[in-house]
Write a protein that binds this DNA or RNA. Structure first.
Lengths: 335, 335
DNA sequence: GCTGGCACTCGATGCTATCGAGTGCCGGAC
DNA sequence: GTCCGGCACTCGATAGCATCGAGTGCCAGC
């Protein structure tokens, strides 16, 4: 039975708790504008909200704290991604106005921007380049049996892989292999590379095969050079137990967990995972706000913000939405 | 007046404090083996050590804590880089046995290894590739006026830069520019690229000039893709004030500060900066242990460990020395 | 159904007493 | 002279205790 008054009360509790990190009492709630009833009435409703699982009482004679369910309701029905402040808008604007340089640099800076806007940790992940096409392939010798494959993709990324061949291969053969591969691979979609027919030279074919298999495996995992985590130090400020900080940092250091996290949450568009919802045990006290960004209509990656469950959702939602949209637009008109 | 007994006392205080993080009292010291005098005598010596600036007393009636000067003396004259444990040695061994893949991957994993060994944050930085020679240069078009220069260097690194040209340039012209640049740049030392003579085509020359200048500027700054900071979460465990953690993390996030820090400390070989010695204000409570690694006789980068001033120096020194040596050897026989 | 009133809870705060690890110093022994 | 035992003293840490007050639940009355 969630009538308007209870919604209002829940909203005040959540907002107040996000601000102060202190359990919120009935008197505080009653003093808020838009709540016109007395503390006693608020108390009655709070009991109901607690029974329904939206609020929690740390101990008798303490105020109430939102549960994950409470935050969820708040995010789903009580909050519209409030607009950004004037100067934050300007910050985003001027960032994208002067952003330049390579894709990686841009994603990296975007991560800093997001942390700066929200004061939480931020994550920026490029999608695996399955749909990108190959613009260039080259084999470069580094020593007797060591070869580097370097491929430039249509999205501006550069994939490289280190090959160790069974036999030595000379410069001439490498050049031949490069030419041969280029003929068959340039223009192909990375996630669906065509078979490369034999060239008649077994050494060339061996190198080619190694290169193709390296590229194939690069197609399906996000380039580790396109995963950026920023603002971890800001997380420290949000928690007061050193131990929590340690746990969260530990997760942020494991890029594959972070990438999985974003993937998991990113069902459709802008979304939020609160507390336990994302299923990463060490991040029970954290929420994640994520949005994909699209380059020329295709999802090209995701950006997100990781903060405490009591994060400032309206602001985080607004920032993530804004930045993902601008980033996508920026990367589109650039290509 | 630093006689043998005082050295022994200082050593015990430092070792004890590193272990327990508690001020060390005279009774504790007197109980240690190798100290054969009574607590009273220890106290007298402690007063002297304090007057000479090696120890500090947080307050009357507390034990003594080493000062930076005390740690310095400890590191310089009381400690020989103790050998690693058996299983740590094995850990390093098996790491380098199965290490493989591209340069960046290797450096990244090395950073993890170091954090794992020491339980502190670790930093791995590749040197700016000034001395590397160019193995391959290529220009790849990404859109009307956008071009990517990709150069492969003799050290296995791949440098790329994004160019925005004044005029559109077609595929044919780009290929011509690539050929032209290759003729003049392949084999050249990156830090001392020769002038590229005009080709007779102004568009080609414009692209070439832009590419060369991008490469030149890449020569002198360490590739941001070759800076790896790992194990930040382990720092959190070493401090108990959230605020300290925050400060240190903030620094670790600023790669240029970290790089500068390593540079500054890296006078000659294995070295240590304690507390204030490295001149980074937010890291007053931290020490850094650094060593260069050499590939084929040339310094190719540096690795280091960042921990609290009360870090376990013998272990850190041993780990850094061992890993830098093995890393260098590994990268040498590979090339 | 809302509200004011009221007794009750319980963490937080502050005070005091006590404890004990540690110190400095002094006077005596080797 | 150097070392050591003894002793009074300091002072942070810990524990106990009273107090405070924000907050609650409940009930009777409007």
């Amino acid at each position: 039975m969630m009538d308007e008054r209870r919604k209002a009360i829940l909203r005040v509790v959540v907002e107040e708790y996000i601000e102060t990190a202190q359990p919120v009492g009935s008197t505080h709630v009653a003093r808020a504008p838009h709540v016109t009833v007395s503390p006693a009435t608020v108390r009655n409703d709070m009991v109901a909200l607690e029974q329904d699982g939206y609020l929690h009482q740390p101990h008798t004679s303490a105020g109430r704290v939102p549960t994950d369910k409470g935050y969820r309701f708040f995010v789903d029905t009580l909050v519209q991604p409030g607009p950004l402040d004037e100067d934050e808008l300007q910050q985003v604007g001027s960032f994208f106005a002067k952003a330049h340089g390579a894709l990686e640099e841009m994603l990296h800076d975007t991560s800093r921007l997001l942390s700066g806007l929200t004061d939480y940790a931020s994550v920026v992940v490029g999608e695996p380049p399955e749909d990108a096409t190959v613009r260039s392939v080259q084999l470069v010798g580094l020593g007797a049996r060591h070869v580097l494959v370097v491929a430039v993709l249509s999205n501006g990324a550069v994939t490289k892989a280190h090959l160790e061949l069974a036999d030595e291969i000379g410069e001439g053969r490498l050049a031949a292999a490069t030419t041969h591969l280029s003929r068959w691979l340039i223009g192909a979609v990375l996630g669906d590379l065509p078979p490369v027919p034999p060239s008649g030279d077994s050494l060339v074919d061996a190198a080619g095969a190694a290169a193709v298999s390296a590229l194939r495996s690069a197609a399906h995992r996000p380039d580790p050079e396109q995963v950026f985590v920023g603002g971890a130090s800001r997380m420290a400020a949000a928690f007061d137990a050193v131990d929590s900080v340690r746990r969260v940092l530990g997760i942020l250091e494991q890029q594959y967990v972070v990438v999985g996290l974003l993937r998991g949450v990113l069902d459709r568009g802008l979304s939020v995972a609160i507390g336990g919802e994302h299923g990463v045990e060490s991040l029970l006290e954290c929420s994640v706000v994520v949005a994909p960004y699209e380059v020329e209509g295709e999802v090209a990656g995701a950006i997100g913000v990781l903060g405490p469950t009591r994060m400032h959702y309206p602001k985080a939602l607004a920032a993530v939405a804004m930045v993902s949209q601008r980033l996508g637009r920026r990367l589109s008109d650039d290509a």
